[in-house]
Each structure stands twice: as structure tokens, then as C-alpha cells.
Amino acid sequence: MTEQPAIETLGLVKRFGATTALSGVDLRVPAGAVLGLLGPNGAGKTTAVRILTTLIRPDGGHARVTGLDVVRQAGAVRRAIGLSGQFAAVDGYLTGRENLVMIGRLSGLRRVAAKRRAADLLELFDLTDRAGRTVRTYSGGMRRRLDVAAALVAAPAVLVLDEPTTGLDPRARLGLWRLLGELTARGTTVLLTTQYLEEADRLADQIVVLDRGQVIATGTAEQLKNRVGGGRLELRTRPGDDPALLAAAMTGLGSATPTVDADAGLVVVPVADGPGVLPDVAARLAAAGLRVSDLALRRPSLDDVFLALTGRPTTTPFVGSSR
């Protein structure tokens, strides 16, 4: 039982008409682990989620959740999963509490259990003071928290979160990350899809990068970032200053030669060590008597990882693929 993976897919294939959304995806999530499914729009993340949550049938391959086949044992799978889909699917005309009680009742909880469960989750998700208000009056972040709470009502063995923070402002995103972090620390198995490496980094033990319906990389966030080669330091000259002087001052600082964008007055230095280089940067600027108008340390983004893995930026429209 303990060795059985919470989620396992083998050669999962799904087509929509002429387009192939998934072409042979293998996933394995051990019980208690958090898997981040990372990829750009149209990579097939949502399709994988919909198969695992019994909403659509695969055209090929197998998918099992807690050992149960998602097609042949769909009913049992539904008792094992909690889904928070891409839209916050809560009823705006019901109160937060009513939404959770309704989901609890429909999950098979008796009335008293559903009410108690709703109260517990409202407390956990910091929604108690708005519990009696209709969800229409909630902010995007509150709606999303309620949606995740709804996915947890039946205490599922596996929680599936499809882009949980899409559309949230940074503060709401951080709040949800903190909550999800607490949940995952309690040992709930989670499958999380996201477009943000930072989100997968923050929440997932293991990351699977999906592109055009195929797994193109697997590893921890650290392993993926190492494939990109760390971050980069971006320095911007003040108007009129020569960026070449700045670049010369920074030579030898990072892991490779600085590159200069003269038009933008931008000097980019690849750095493996991140913030560790900052004292050195300050010292070099002072020694050379140079000043900068802007300084930024960029962590590898999904775009960087993606570019490194595919040689193609995420913003490229995927003509005729996926979706």
C-alpha cells in the first residue's frame, strides 16, 4: 500500500479532433508528494488533469489514482480526489459556507459532518468572517481560497490543483502559496499545474515539464535551474554613460562574459551565485567610479528553462498543437 504511487500514468494519449493534446505522458507521484506539472499554455496540463479527475477519457494509455483506474473505476476515483479547476468554480450567489456545505453533501457527507467540515475549512483558509456573505462579494484571492477549500471538503487522498494562482494579484498569490505549503507539509498528495517556475519551485517536490503534450524534463526545481545555468544580473547605465565601461568593470564577476546591449544601455552578466555576487558588484562599481540607473538580479524563469530545454521561448504561439 505504501509503495503504491498516489498517481500513475503510462503512455497517456488524448486527441481533440486533429490536434494531439497528450502524446504518451508518463507520470508518477508517490503518496504524500507534491508534483508540479509545469508548462506553457496549451502544453497539455489541463488535459492531464481532466483525465486524472475522470472528466474526460484518455484515447490511449492508462491512468491510476490511488491504484484505481480513472476509466473503469471512475466512481471510486472521484471519492479519492479533490479538484480545484482553472476557474474558481464556486457559486457566486451562495455564501462561502453554503458552497462548502453543498460540496460536502454532494461528496456524501452527512449534514452534521458537512457543516463541521465547512466550519473547519473556513477557519483554515481564513474565510470565517466572510463565511456568511455571498461569494460574489469576495475578492479573487478569497474566491480561489474557497475553491481550494471546496476541493478539500471530502478530505481527499489526492488533491489536484489546476493553475491555482492564475489571475491572482501578488499578495493573494503569496497567501495561497503559504496555505498550500501548509497543506503539503501535512502529507496530502498534490498534483499542481502551473505556468510559473517560481510556483512549482515553492510548492513542488518534483517538477515535470510538459510541452506539446510530451514530458520534456523531470527533476527538482534546482535541477531544472541548473540546466539553465543559474540566474543573471542586469545592470542599466545612466543615460549618456557607455555600457562598455560597465561591462569591462564586471568582467570576471560571473560565470561567463557580460553581454552588452548598447541601445538599451543594458549589461547582462550570467551569475550562478545569485545574491552572493552583490557585494562584489558594489565594490567593482565603486572602484571604477561608475553608477547605474537600475540593477536587477533575475532568477531563471520558466521562459529561461523552457528556452534551454526546447530552444524556443514560451511565448511562441504553438501553431496547430495542443489545446
Binding site: 475522470t54 472521484r78 479538484l83 468554480a89 461528496s107 456524501g108
Partner: peptide
Amino acid sequence: TTGMIDRFRALPMARAA
């Protein structure tokens, strides 16, 4: 369109309900 039916469909509830 709002995903409410997706939520219901993923629940172990009676299909016709």
C-alpha cells in the same frame, strides 16, 4: 461555462442530480 459542472462531475454524486 463557469466550471461548476466540472466540479459536480468530479464529485462522487448521482449523475442525474
